[in-house]
C-alpha cells in the first residue's frame, strides 16, 4: 500500500494567550488514501474548518504534522504545494471578487503558475464543472449561488491538484442546487482520481459524499467511522449518537 495522500498527525491549534487561550484543535489525527473522500462532521466551533485552514497553510501556527504523500508539508507552504492541494470555500458570495469577470478570477492562478493555453484551460474547466464556456465573460453577480460555487470549484481545479479541501461547499445553497453541485464533485473525483477532505455539519451530505467520517466536538476527533456504520447507526461514542439522532429526527417522518 502506498503512502496516504494526506495525513494529519497530532495536529493541535490554539488561539489567544493566557486565560483567553482556546484549544481549537486538540491532537487530531487521520489519514486519507489516494482517491478517497474523507468527511469531518461537527457543530459550529468544533474545529473542523480550522483543520482545513491549517492544511492549506492559511493558519501557520499549528503543532503536529501535515503530510502530503508521506512528506511533511513545507512551512510556510511553498508554491508547489498548491499545485497538489486546493481548497473550495463555503460562501460563493464571498469567495469570488465581485468586480472581476470570472475569466479574470480564473486567469490569476494560471498567470501565477505560468501555465500555457490559458483560454483553453478556462473553457475546459468551466465545461468540467457543468457551465458553458461563455460564463467566463460574466461577473459574479450575474450568476446564481450554484453557478458561483461551480466557478469556485473550477478555480480550484485549474492547477490540476490531487487533493481538494471542501469547506461546507453547499451549505449556502438550496437542496435542489446542492444536488447538482454534489453530483459534479462526485463525478470529478471519480474521473480524475481526486482525494477529498470535506467538512460539513450536514450528516446527509457527508454520508453521500464520503467513505470515512470523523466526528469532531470541542476540538477533538471523538470517533472515526465508515459510512456504512454511520448509515446503520453503529456509533461507539455517545456524542456521535446524539448527533445522528438529531439529524435523523426529521427523517423518521418519511
Amino acid at each position: 500500500m502506498s503512502a496516504p495522500s494526506l495525513e494529519i498527525a497530532d495536529l493541535s491549534i490554539a488561539f489567544g494567550h493566557g486565560r483567553a487561550r482556546v484549544q481549537a484543535v486538540d491532537r487530531a489525527s487521520f489519514s486519507v488514501a489516494p482517491g478517497d473522500a474523507f468527511g469531518i462532521i461537527g457543530e459550529s466551533g468544533s474545529g473542523k474548518s480550522t483543520i482545513l485552514r491549517a492544511v492549506t497553510g492559511l493558519l501557520d501556527d499549528y503543532e503536529g504534522g501535515v503530510l502530503i504523500d508521506g512528506q511533511m508539508a513545507p512551512r510556510p507552504r511553498a508554491r508547489a504545494f498548491f499545485k497538489t492541494v486546493q481548497m473550495v470555500f463555503q460562501d460563493p458570495y464571498g469567495s469570488l471578487h465581485p468586480r472581476r469577470m470570472i475569466r479574470a478570477t480564473l486567469m490569476e492562478p494560471l498567470e501565477i503558475y505560468r501555465l500555457d493555453r490559458r483560454d483553453d484551460r478556462i473553457a475546459q474547466v468551466l465545461v468540467d464543472v457543468g457551465l458553458a464556456p461563455e460564463y467566463a465573460y460574466r461577473y459574479p453577480h450575474q450568476l446564481s449561488g450554484g453557478q458561483r460555487q461551480r466557478v469556485a470549484v473550477a478555480r480550484a481545479l485549474l492547477l490540476e491538484p490531487r487533493i481538494l479541501l471542501l469547506d461546507e461547499p453547499t451549505s449556502a445553497l438550496d437542496v435542489s442546487v446542492q444536488a447538482g453541485v454534489l453530483n459534479v464533485l462526485n463525478a470529478l473525483r471519480r474521473a480524475r482520481g481526486l482525494t477529498y477532505v470535506m467538512v460539513s455539519h450536514d450528516l446527509r451530505v457527508i454520508a453521500h459524499m464520503c467513505s470515512r467520517i470523523a466526528v469532531m466536538t470541542q476540538g477533538r476527533i471523538v470517533e472515526e467511522m465508515s459510512v456504512e456504520d454511520l448509515r446503520a447507526q453503529r456509533a461507539q461514542e455517545q456524542y456521535t449518537r446524539t448527533l445522528i439522532a438529531a439529524s435523523r429526527a426529521a427523517v423518521t417522518a418519511e
Binding site: V175, S176, A179, L182, N183, R204, A207, R231, V251
Partner: peptide
Amino acid sequence: SLPPLDHAVDELIVP
C-alpha cells in the same frame, strides 16, 4: 434531491 441518510445513491436527482 435530498441525499438519503439510510442508503447510498450513485447520483442525486437534480430537479
